[in-house]
Design a protein around this nucleic acid. Structure first.
Lengths: 211, 211, 211, 211
DNA sequence: CATGAATGAGCCTTCATTCAT
DNA sequence: TATGAATGAAGGCTCATTCAT
């Protein structure tokens, strides 16, 4: 016979599991049919649970998307952070390789499941002022992250001393966004890779012809 | 007494005027409350007309947003095309100045009415597969436009011979998008200008330190 | 130059003409799309007039159907009354022929334009208590008409003395209705004629086998 | 405490009950105010339920009338079939009595609730091409039923050998219809009975005077 | 705790009718 | 007089949310 704590923790585990499942199902529904096109019933049906159950785990329809976002961000950040400390590069070449690594990791995660960018860029917008603010916050975080790399490069001397770190970080992230959007259009890996290459080329060499 | 043609054209003028007003009011509503947050009644009320009147001018709610977009695109294109033929620049310096002019024009129109980018980037997404395709189409057009400038530069020799025109065009547009998004966050002109400057700097000089 | 009365009467003539046209167009619309399926605009469009004009000739949508019915009844009665005075038959044979004539006339008018029975039996019902009463009135009139023939036959001695004139008249009209309904089902003349023959056979000979 | 099956069957029972109630209420509303005059809200209000509940049980407004008809047909058929097998009569006298029994049963059910014929003949028409077809189908079924009796009589020899069974069946049903319509006009039982008697008289003896 | 029946606010859309031109 | 622009009552339907079981 099991102890009370075991039983409890089992119940808790099940509860946490279902919570996860609801988040995942919501993610799928939102990404595929849009936030407004998704009903609570759709989410519940996908899981084979009663739709009343949804409300035992989340406040309301608006509530769930926050958690879906949390989850996505965690996934993306997790896959990027590995082996990519901002201070890992000590020379332009190392930075180049680092950028390539990050680029590949991003490409991998986004191409792996296009519903991720789809949800972030298309379905999570226009729902709510609060949510919009949150998306802006994500952009900020991303810009800070990128800025961190740039700052390190400037400090180390392999990036331009007069680099406007913040502005450049935003510009770079914009280019990444462009590549992500492109990946959404059904283009295959090569297409995205070529844009990624163009971006790196632009970053490191600019566009002007060498005199 | 007026002639028949005058009367006709007066009625037509009134009709065209109201049509315009409905488009404008819809634009405002959609930009402020979102597409799903806007009811036909809201649009009508804003104009002080009966909501039935709306349906004399547009098929349905879905219909109007197409026209709002048409209108926006026309406005933006109109303000950009002036004095900015893709083949107007014959040297890097001229191109630099051209880019600056375009940048200023964009900044002007977007800062002038932040609801424009807000509608385009946040409220027009996630409504419809058709509409999404249309937005993609706009991105394509923009990329072609940018690509045209780049190609001219390569042909003239002031841009890198080996430039991946298409990819670079997309990257550049991504940066512009980033600036636009930044303009949405309540930053004032200086902020946006500084990002614009960083973009230009990145474009022309890249980020690496001159050896 | 014309005199005032001429002008007026011309105007009046035109007015009466349009009134007729509206009735006809309404008949067509109601018969084809049903009363509820027909909008005032449909009627006006069919005539190429403004739909506001409708209201200069008729009170409202409900009003017009009364006039459409008036028109139909006049048409049917007109085509039946000719050569079919209730007292025209003096023997069973003459009555038989008279019944056949009436039967043919009815068949002719109803098969000629199936929209007539369609409107009367399907589209004019269920609109209004008043209209229903009016349809009942038409049935009464028809029963009285039929009853007139029967009474004459009884008086003349070629129909059963103990005939329940009123009840039988209704029964006969019911059979006519059945034939009319049958004509509505896309059956051709032969079908309807065969039912008409069965009706006459039933009327004159009953169904039982001669002992 | 109840077992699971009990609970389930209780819920199912409640559900079936409400479904029935909605059909009944719809029947009442349609019969009293007409199909187009009835709103879903009317039906719901009559039952004291929310109008959203209606849509848990039926697809849409058009859907319910089919079920109302199903119900009516079942009721009518049920009350007729009893003790009235088409092959129960072996002589004219027996057939006469059978006809009388059927006549009485019909009279009973229709006079009992005049809304039944009212709905069938007045409110169910002109709604829909599909529904019209269905009504025609009912007429067909009725004609086949009547035809069955006739055929049996011809086979047994107590009805005319040369009887046009199909046509006569339709004629007879037309007379029944006439009686039903009469019953709708607020006439009491005697009136209807007298028409029924006239019909039987016509059926068996025809109208002509015995020579 | 899970369920799903019930609810009603809310929204889009139609169309008969009015009335200024 | 003819017109059609404007109107808003009316109604069908959806779906997020609640709550009794």
């Amino acid at each position: 016979m099991m102890s009370v704590t075991d039983t409890l923790s089992r119940a808790e585990r099940k509860r946490a599991e279902l919570r996860r499942d609801i988040i995942d199902a919501s993610f799928s529904c939102f990404a595929e049919q849009g936030y407004h096109g998704t009903g609570i019933a759709d989410i519940a049906t996908r899981l084979g649970i009663g739709h009343g159950t949804f409300y035992r785990y989340f406040e309301n329809k608006r509530d769930i998307i926050d958690h879906v976002l949390d989850d996505l961000v965690a996934r993306i950040v997790g896959s990027l952070v590995t082996d990519n400390a901002p201070d890992a590069a000590d020379s332009l070449d190392e930075y180049r390789r680092q950028v390539e690594r990050i680029s590949d990791a991003l490409t991998a995660i986004l191409l792996d499941d296009p519903r991720i960018p789809r949800l972030l860029l298309f379905e999570a917008t226009g729902i709510d002022a609060d949510l919009t603010q949150r998306l802006f916050g994500l952009l900020d975080t991303a810009a800070e992250l990128t800025g961190g790399y740039l700052k390190h490069g400037v400090d180390r001397g392999y990036l331009r001393e007069n680099l406007d770190i913040e502005g450049t970080a935003q510009a770079i992230n914009g280019m990444i966004l462009a590549a992500v959007v492109r990946s959404l259009r059904g283009h295959d890996k090569e297409d995205v890779d070529s844009v990624a290459a163009a971006i790196r080329s632009l970053m490191f060499d600019g566009i002007k012809s060498p005199e």
